[in-house]
Amino acid sequence: MNAAERIEAASSFLLQSPPGEINDVLNDVRNIISDDDSLHEGVLPALKEYNLTQFMTWILPNVSPQSIVSDAARIEATEGGQERFIDPRSKTSFLFDHLSLEASSSQPAEPDADSEPFRAALEKATLAYLEAHFHDGVASILSSKQSTNHFVIQVVANKYNPSNYWSGRWRSEYNINLNDNTVAGKVLVNIHYYEQGNVQLSTTHNISLSLPAAIVTSSPTASASKILALIEDEEGKYQTSLNDTYQEMGEKTFKGLRRALPLTRQKIDWDKVLGYKLGAELASSKGLFGGS
Rank of each mutant, 00 (worst) to 15 (best):
A46M: 09
D233Y: 11
E173H: 08
A280C: 03
Y194L: 08
K159N: 11
G287L: 11
V155Q: 13
A73L: 08
G81W: 02
S17W: 00
T203E: 03
Y160A: 12
E234G: 02
G42D: 00
N243C: 00
R74V: 06
F94T: 06
F118T: 05
A121V: 02
W166V: 05
S218M: 08
P220H: 08
V273M: 10
F254D: 08
A132Y: 13
G291F: 09
A72H: 08
V43I: 13
D271F: 07
A3H: 14
S219D: 11
Q54H: 15
S167I: 05
S100N: 14
N164K: 14
Y165V: 05
V152T: 10
T126C: 10
E235Q: 11
D35T: 04
V199C: 12
Y174M: 03
Y246K: 09
D28I: 12
N23Y: 07
D87L: 03
F94V: 07
H98W: 07
I86D: 03
V273F: 06
Q16W: 11
S143C: 01
Y194W: 12
N206S: 05
Q266D: 02
L15Y: 02
P108A: 01
G185A: 05
F85W: 02
Y276W: 13
V43M: 04
T53A: 07
F13R: 10
T53D: 09
D271M: 09
S172H: 15
N31A: 15
A103P: 04
L274I: 03
P117M: 08
L95E: 04
K48T: 01
N198M: 04
E123K: 08
M249P: 03
H135G: 13
A157F: 08
Q247A: 09
Q82M: 14
P19C: 07
E110F: 06
L26P: 04
Y50N: 10
S105P: 00
K186Y: 14
A46Y: 00
T221L: 01
F13L: 12
N62S: 15
L263P: 06
A4D: 15
S208V: 00
N149I: 03
M249G: 03
R171S: 01
G197A: 14
N27G: 12
Q107W: 07
P19E: 00
H150L: 07
K252N: 10
T245M: 10
E251P: 06
R119L: 00
G236L: 05
L278S: 12
S219M: 02
L52H: 01
G290R: 14
I86S: 04
V69D: 03
Q54R: 15
S284T: 03
E41T: 03
F13C: 15
I22P: 01
A184V: 14
F96N: 03
Q154I: 01
A10W: 06
I32Y: 13
S163D: 03
S70H: 00
P65F: 00
Y50K: 10
P45M: 07
S223Y: 06
V156H: 08
G197L: 07
V273K: 08
S11E: 04
D24A: 15
G137Y: 05
V183L: 07
G197V: 09
N23C: 11
D35G: 09
L130R: 01
D97I: 01
K226Q: 15
I215T: 01
N175R: 11
Q200C: 05
L288I: 04
D36E: 12
L44W: 05
N158Q: 14
W170T: 06
V63M: 06
A103R: 03
E8G: 12
